[in-house]
């Protein structure tokens, strides 16, 4: 009996020891990545938050004096007289434009992306890989260069104008660059793969016998599309839309290259605070605002996704 007891307690000791060693090793292994990200990603976010509650230095930088002026200035601006407080029209306009252009980008990429994803997902296997590859290459390649490619198309002496004049549609080059339309075009172009990939992932998992069942039960093509295909693609549609929306909302390069001052978006505004305006706290506050907006959208997204998962079970 005595041996039994000792062996029982030694067994649980072994287990506890193995567990704690495993935990320690796992943390040690994760340490470099954790440190790197704490220094290079998460830590700076905290600093950003702190910075937004400080006062701006004269030539950039901050003065270590707490204040909420920066937050105040995100929405209000001092009147010309200095005492009248009014809404910062420029900022609000830029917020509004960012949301508007981002939503439009989602719509355009969905209109083009859904057929593309559906087309790819319904190809036979070897072909499908090739088509998917064609989408994935732009997905991973330089956003700047793809924006420059659009710039080449639409600038005054660009491909489209040259072609139109050469054919004789127009005499003078059209002003396309530095407009909101140019930004929308550029964003739709660069973020299209971001819409196609999640859509494809969800359509690829379809049980196409469900479509057969739909036809069998007297649905016509439009009804099958509307009542079966679209709902089944739901998670992919949500994922793709969120990805495109969040990316567009924070877009910096594309609006900067294709847009003018009249079509600035929130990221340009943040950048401006850190460069020309040299008001870091305001830039930090605006960045936090953007982060909050993105976080809210992501939380909604994750909630939706979890709900879908729960429905599956």
């Amino acid at each position: 009996m005595a041996t039994m007891e000792t062996s029982a307690s030694s067994a649980s000791n072994h287990e506890a020891l193995a567990n704690s060693r495993r935990t320690r090793n796992s943390w040690l292994l994760s340490l470099p990545a954790v440190l790197l990200l704490l220094i290079g990603a998460s830590g700076p976010l905290l600093v950003l938050l702190v910075c937004s509650f400080l006062e701006p230095g004269d030539y950039g930088g901050v003065i270590w004096k707490p204040g909420i002026e920066a937050w105040f200035k995100t929405i209000f601006s001092d009147g010309i007289g200095g005492d009248a407080i009014q809404l910062a029209d420029a900022h609000l306009l830029i917020f509004w434009r960012s949301v508007k252009v981002s939503l439009l980008t989602v719509l355009v990429t969905f209109a083009l992306g859904f057929p593309t994803a559906y087309f790819i997902a319904t190809r036979p296997r070897p072909q499908r890989t090739v088509w998917l590859f064609l989408i994935t290459i732009p997905f991973w390649s330089s956003l700047l260069i793809r924006t420059i490619a659009i710039l080449e198309m639409i600038r005054g002496e660009g491909v489209i104008n040259t072609l139109a004049i050469w054919i004789g549609f127009i005499d003078q080059p059209m002003q396309m660059l530095h407009t909101e339309g140019a930004v929308l075009l550029g964003m739709a172009y660069v973020y299209l793969p971001l819409m196609v990939l999640p859509l494809h992932a969800s359509i690829e998992r379809f049980d196409f016998r469900l479509l057969e069942a739909g036809y069998d039960l007297y649905a016509n093509r439009w009804q099958v599309f509307r009542r079966i295909v679209l709902p089944l693609a739901g998670p992919g549609i949500v994922a793709g839309s969120i990805l495109v929306f969040v990316s567009s909302l924070g877009a910096y390069v594309t609006p900067r290259v294709l847009g003018g001052d009249e079509s600035a978006m929130i990221a340009s505004l943040i950048g401006y605070q850190f460069s020309q305006a040299e008001n870091w706290p305001l830039g930090a506050a605006l960045a936090i605002l953007l982060l909050a907006a993105v976080a809210i959208v992501l939380v909604i997204f994750i909630r939706t996704l979890c709900a879908e998962r729960a429905d599956d079970r």
């Binding site: 954790v34 990603a41 950003l48 950048g271 870091w280 930090a284 960045a287």
Partner: peptide, 19 residues
């Protein structure tokens, strides 16, 4: 933590790192 940089607009990280 690892996926954090993926989930946020680059401009935010850029601003934070600048500071």
């Amino acid at each position: 933590l690892i996926n954090q940089p993926v989930m946020m607009p680059e401009i935010i990280m850029a601003a934070a790192l600048l500071i």
